[in-house]
Simulated assay, not measured.
Amino acid sequence: MKFRYLGNSGLKISEITYGNWLTHGSQVENDTATACVHAALDAGITTFDTADVYANTAAEKVLGDALQGQRRESLEIFTKVYWPTGPKGHNDVGLSRKHILESIDGSLRRLGTDYVDLYQAHRYDVETPLEETMQAFADIVRQGKALYIGVSEWTAGQLRAGQELASQLGFRIISSQPQYSMLWRVIEPEVIPASKELGISQIVWSPMAQGVLSGKYKPGQPAPAGSRATDEKGGAAMVHRFLDNEQLVERVQGLQPIADELGISMAQLAIAWVLQNDNVAAALVGASRPEQITHNVAASGVTIPPELMTRIDEVLGDVVVRDPSLTRAPQGRPA
């Protein structure tokens, strides 16, 4: 396993990071989730990412239980705040001081730890003054409940405004967690240049485009049984965003010869591809079976030569989404 610094900080994280969105507390049984976490540890993963909203707080509890008995100082545990949790009352959402300070305590309790290494704003809150949000994060850092602060799906302008306030308050935003893959490159035009300027690096989610880049979805054929595209509880709608484009599915199959040339699978190629970007600190991978983790970790340390990076672009062509306006920034809080 290779390790990278997270942003302009001294924190090193495993470049393959285990995430439990859609799986723990929901898609897989707890004993299987624990087996996946242990497989991640055995494979050299030290960094684990979750959020209070995943399975309405259950995912944090499952992860915390699975990590019990591990040396805390040898782990990097990340979680997030923003989306509604619990009974989803009027203050159970957003980045208000009330919601942030209450949420960090709940997350620490479920995770069974005194602190998280990274606490992330899961989205930008357009209804709470940014000054209030940043002050709450500053207080959490001073209290030792979070060592570092990050964000998820913020635009370049939001990153700049947030970093300016953070700096005035004595801390720094060190990470951004956006969706990023060969097929979804909306952060490249604006977010990545701004992040480099601000000392922020990316922890990217869905590097395999919800499994589409694994190559298991074939043109003109039904989705394989048990795949995410057939699981209405496991993000099927997000997969079909890609699968409903027949040309895209055909182009993805054209990546197989490139993977073969490198001696790796298409899934490993997808993970290795995002890690070629020098602003990416880690690729988030999940698993519903331990062997998936073992397989995906083999992408760590893989170098894709420039000529093959060019060929990937040629194969995918215009099915790649690059529009920076699609960076996820909600216009208001969810109901």
Rank of each mutant, 00 (worst) to 15 (best):
K2E: 15
Y5C: 07
K12W: 09
T23K: 06
H24Q: 12
D31L: 14
V37F: 03
A40E: 03
A43V: 11
V53P: 13
Y54H: 00
T57S: 15
V62A: 10
G64Y: 04
G64P: 14
L67G: 12
F78W: 15
V81K: 08
G94L: 08
S103N: 00
D105F: 05
D105T: 06
S107R: 08
R109C: 15
T113C: 02
D114A: 12
A121S: 14
E127D: 04
T128C: 04
A138T: 14
D139L: 13
A146I: 07
I149V: 12
V151F: 01
S152G: 06
T155E: 00
Q158W: 07
L159S: 11
A161N: 01
E164P: 08
S167R: 14
L169Y: 08
G170A: 13
R172T: 12
I173G: 02
S175N: 13
I192K: 11
A194S: 05
L198A: 03
I200R: 03
I203N: 10
P222E: 09
P224L: 03
A236W: 00
R241P: 14
Q256V: 11
L262S: 06
I271G: 02
A281H: 13
V285T: 09
R289Q: 09
P290G: 11
A298F: 14
G301W: 00
P306C: 00
D313K: 15
D313Y: 15
V315I: 05
L316G: 01
G332V: 13
